[in-house]
């Protein structure tokens, strides 16, 4: 089902999203990938402030290519989400409501999504040029030294994403494929 959703991603919006929904997302979202997640996680464990508000927000697992003159951002597709799995449950516990990436998630992440009510979207991997056209503003807000891995605040308009795992643990990757354990163990 096609849905148009604006941020903030509040509880009621999360609970209305079902695996398989095709969503056009608008509003403010944040980017963070491996190195930024590690820093966020370590800061939170140490009880320090982090540079973004997690509550009702969405993190896009993205490290863009540089923008040319006149462009908002370079190529801007999703990276593989499973590398963020180690850090994700703590972010969900602290209010994160949505994640955009590609690929499978761990049982721990899916359980935390269920417990704290959050949703996992897939954007199309390898469609970075197309997806960049939906990004209207981009600004580095933290960890500038990480280059492409810095945290950016993005303003997006009708960013096309698909709900792959919803807060009820419905999982499109499971529905569409036979049972496929990853790395010899079932980490769906």
């Amino acid at each position: 089902m096609d849905k148009y959703i604006s941020t903030p991603l509040t509880e009621d919006k999360v609970m209305d999203l079902k695996a398989g929904d095709y969503v056009y997302l608008s509003g403010t979202i944040y980017t963070a990938r491996d190195a930024a997640h590690k820093r966020l996680y370590e800061s939170m464990l140490a009880g320090k402030d982090i540079p973004l508000e997690l509550k009702d927000n969405i993190i896009y697992y993205l490290g863009p290519s540089p923008a040319r003159e006149g462009q908002v951002i370079g190529s801007a597709g999703p990276t593989t989400s499973s590398r963020m799995d180690k850090y994700t449950p703590l972010l969900l516990k602290n209010g994160l409501k949505g994640m955009i990436g590609k690929g499978k998630r761990s049982v721990e992440v899916i359980d935390a999504m269920h417990e704290y009510h959050a949703v996992y979207f897939a954007a199309i991997g390898g469609a970075g040029a197309l997806l960049s056209k939906c990004i209207k503003k981009a600004e580095v807000i933290a960890y500038d030294d990480l280059g492409t891995e810095a945290i950016r605040r993005l303003e997006v308009e009708n960013l096309p994403v698909i709900v792959v795992i919803d807060a009820e643990k419905n999982n499109m990757y499971e529905q569409e494929n036979a049972v496929i354990p990853a790395n010899g163990k079932d980490d769906r």
């Binding site: 190529s75 597709g77 991997g125 970075g128 040029a129 492409t148």
Partner: peptide, 10 residues
């Protein structure tokens, strides 16, 4: 057309 990399992972 716009010289944007096909994928951000170049």
């Amino acid at each position: 057309a716009e010289s944007i990399p096909i994928c951000q992972d170049t």
